[in-house]
Amino acid sequence: MRLVIRDIVKRNQDELLLDKAGYTFYQGKVYGISGKEKSRRALMACIAFEDRYDSGSMELICAGRNCMAPAMVVRFPEEPAFPEFLTVREFLKYYIDINRRNIAESKTIDEYLAYVELEHVRSDRMLKDFTWEERMRLEFLCLLITAPPVLLIDNLRSISNVDFLKDIKRYIDRLKESSIILLESTNNAVTVFLCDEELTINNGCIQGGV
């Protein structure tokens, strides 16, 4: 599976954010995007179908055909939000039920929770009482369950807990087996730690890579 971006041009009034930007992103790698903030955000917004580009094309090639669609792209939220009146197991039951068609390998809820170190959460604890870190883990678990083809992670907060950062690295490494992951962060150290290939948007063009 690969995401092919060709000659994307994006303007914001008089400012040229993307100038015939093009690159091919492959499944199995985490791409770190750096450069001017407006250009990075414009690229992410265009891929996520949140903004229109002025010209160019984007294709998601799966098994030889273009399957690019809004449903194929998931953007990691800055503040993961869940139905707060559910417990974590109730939420997972619901989430697994509504995504059953997209789940390749079915597991028990406790097995899923063990992926992200949440198996010891009390059964009566509601999601509204979850800390930010627990919500992040749960969000990653949702992504691990449904494995979206394209995952954009551009809202990672600055994470000071090194152990938690290592856990995120583990989740991302697991996700990349079935997804194309684009990552950008204001903290360059985090970007470098988490990604396999570094790209830069320079004068509207995507440069770099291994």
Binding site: A71, R75, P77, A81, C142
Partner: peptide, 8 residues
Amino acid sequence: GMLESTRH
């Protein structure tokens, strides 16, 4: 929460 999340 559903609308804020990125789930399509």
